[in-house]
């Protein structure tokens, strides 16, 4: 590197993942500043050092605005503000996936709960509705039939936030009790896990168990393409298998949590090390 590039990790919570990332920087004797986003602010026009910032902020609003502000100050933010915005919005993610020709379940956007009922009649039952923003499987509802949809959407119609009344509708995919999480770093699929659960929502945050999944060339390629579709440099790509075994991309996570995957991987691959190596390589190439 022709100049020293400071590294920083933006995070309001230091979870196992962030601790592993800090340890990976330490192992390389590379300094890394922890920016606690709860105390961070930025005045437009201020331009100091141009760090490479790994955005690990857990709150979507803070992550998005911090990325925008840091980029305005000349920093390189991973993932970029654009990627964070795309991944943070399920509809925008789905639109980007479809635009890129990536297989994904049939999805519709309804601007009112009433319109959602019409959309559901077309998509068919069972179906799923999801909030535009949110993670960990929260507030995702399975709709087996129209009466259930009418009940759930009546609640949605009573929500005070206008955005909460916009409904993301998706066809139900009868997945085999598991989904697949692939971690992509710098355009390369690092590892994959099955996430198995009794519940139809196979989120680790809801108790799903991670098991190693063979990273086949097809799976790796699809995950990398999905990450590229939403401009995500580091991503957790979630896929499901339909009844025929075809892989469909459900969503792409910009702030991938990898402790479950790391546990399944054991010592074979260190996700934190791969992320830090990628950041260091990026610093070398941008400053050579």
């Amino acid at each position: 590197m022709s100049r020293t590039v400071p590294f920083a990790v933006l995070a309001s919570r230091v979870r196992t993942d962030e601790k592993a990332l800090f340890a990976a920087f330490d192992r390389r004797a590379i300094g890394c500043q922890h920016i606690d986003s709860r105390g961070w602010w930025h005045q437009l026009g201020d331009r100091g050092p141009r760090p490479i910032v790994l955005n690990r902020e857990i709150g979507l609003a803070r992550a998005t605005y911090a990325a925008r502000a840091l980029e305005a100050a000349g920093a390189t933010v991973v993932n970029s503000a654009r990627a964070t915005e795309l991944c943070g919005d399920k509809w925008r993610t789905s639109a980007a996936l479809v635009e890129a020709g990536i297989p994904t379940p049939r999805t519709a956007l309804a601007l009112t709960p009433e319109a959602a009922l019409t959309a559901l009649d077309t998509i068919g039952y069972p179906a799923v509705i999801k909030p535009l923003h949110g993670s960990w499987g929260r507030l995702i509802a399975a709709l087996p039939d129209r009466p259930t949809a009418e009940t759930i959407l009546e609640y949605a119609a009573a929500l005070p936030a206008p955005q909460a009344r916009i409904v993301y509708v998706q066809e139900w995919i009868a997945k085999p009790g598991r989904d697949i999480r692939v971690v992509v770093v710098g355009g390369e699929a690092v590892a994959a896990t099955y996430r198995r659960a009794e519940d139809w929502r196979t989120n680790v945050a809801r108790g799903a168990v991670s098991e190693l999944c063979p990273l086949t060339p097809d799976l790796a390629k699809l995950a990398v393409l999905a990450a590229q579709a939403v401009a995500a440099d580091i991503a957790g790509v979630d896929l499901i298998e339909d009844e025929t075994g075809e892989l469909l991309v459900l969503e792409v996570n910009h702030g991938v949590e990898f402790s479950g995957l790391q546990q399944a991987l054991g010592d074979t691959v260190s996700v934190a090390d791969r992320i830090v190596d990628h950041l260091v390589d990026g610093a070398r190439s941008c400053c050579a």
Partner: peptide, 23 residues
């Protein structure tokens, strides 16, 4: 719990999960 200080080591209840938290 969130660790607030290291010397002496001290912790407080971590902030509650907010609506837009996730990955």
């Amino acid at each position: 719990l969130e660790i607030l200080t290291l010397d002496p080591i001290r912790a407080a209840l971590a902030p509650e999960i907010e609506e837009d938290w996730g990955e």
